Simulated scan of single mutants.
Amino acid sequence: MTVTAGGGTALTPEELTFWRLLQRVQVQITRALEAELLLEHGLSLPAFEVLAHLHEAPERRLRMNDLADRVLLSRSGLTRLADRLQSEGLLRREACPSDARGLYAVLTDEGAARRDAAAPTYQRAIRGHFLDLLDDDELRRCTAVLTKLLSRGGACPPDRRRS
């Protein structure tokens, strides 16, 4: 390994290839999922994720900050998406009784119906573009590696993210 001018260790060609492949695979799968959701249901992938997370939450509601963390959007990005989903009648926002500045996103019946209609497309796309390409052992190993990487806490703390 070589040391870079900044004092860090340079990436090997194999390491750089792996890193770039990881990025490309994530983008490729995300684009394919989004294309199918848009074509069949008129929902972007982030919109589907918002509806899905609300569907899975107790009382079909989450605080906006918690929802942003779960769907990997900035606070302002989620606010813009929630505005669109609210205008379509798929969610509503309610004040948080314990925090005057806090808001809940709440899944409406219409939002639940859109999520239910799109869920088979989402699941089929994930299976077809990703899971069916891995055998059980590869899936277990990939899960272990990704879990290890996430447990290291390398992501920016929520209070330091840009909005």
Rank of each mutant, 00 (worst) to 15 (best):
G6F: 00
A10G: 08
T12V: 12
P13I: 02
E14I: 14
E14L: 10
T17Y: 13
W19P: 07
L22K: 15
R24I: 02
V25Q: 15
R31A: 11
A32F: 00
E34I: 03
E36Y: 08
L39F: 12
L39D: 14
H41E: 03
H41N: 12
L43D: 05
S44A: 07
L45A: 09
A47N: 05
E49A: 10
L51M: 03
A52E: 01
A52Y: 01
H53Y: 02
E56C: 04
L62A: 08
N65V: 13
L67R: 11
L67T: 01
V71S: 07
V71W: 03
L72I: 09
R75T: 08
S76C: 07
G77F: 00
L78D: 00
T79F: 03
L81P: 05
L81A: 10
L85M: 08
R92S: 07
R92G: 10
R93N: 11
A95W: 14
A95P: 06
C96Q: 13
P97S: 01
D99E: 14
D99M: 00
D99Y: 11
R101C: 02
R101F: 13
G102Q: 06
L103V: 11
Y104V: 05
A105S: 12
L107M: 04
L107R: 13
D109G: 09
A112G: 15
A113F: 06
A113Y: 00
R114H: 10
R114I: 00
R115M: 12
A117C: 10
Y122T: 01
Q123W: 06
Q123A: 06
A125I: 06
A125S: 14
A125G: 01
H129P: 00
F130C: 06
L131F: 01
L133P: 04
L134Q: 08
D135M: 03
D135Q: 06
D135C: 10
D136A: 14
D137M: 08
E138P: 00
L139R: 15
R140P: 02
C142L: 14
T143H: 12
V145Q: 13
V145D: 01
L149R: 09
L150Q: 02
L150K: 11
A155G: 11
C156I: 07
P158K: 12
D159T: 08
R160L: 09
R161D: 00
R161E: 12
R162E: 12
S163P: 05
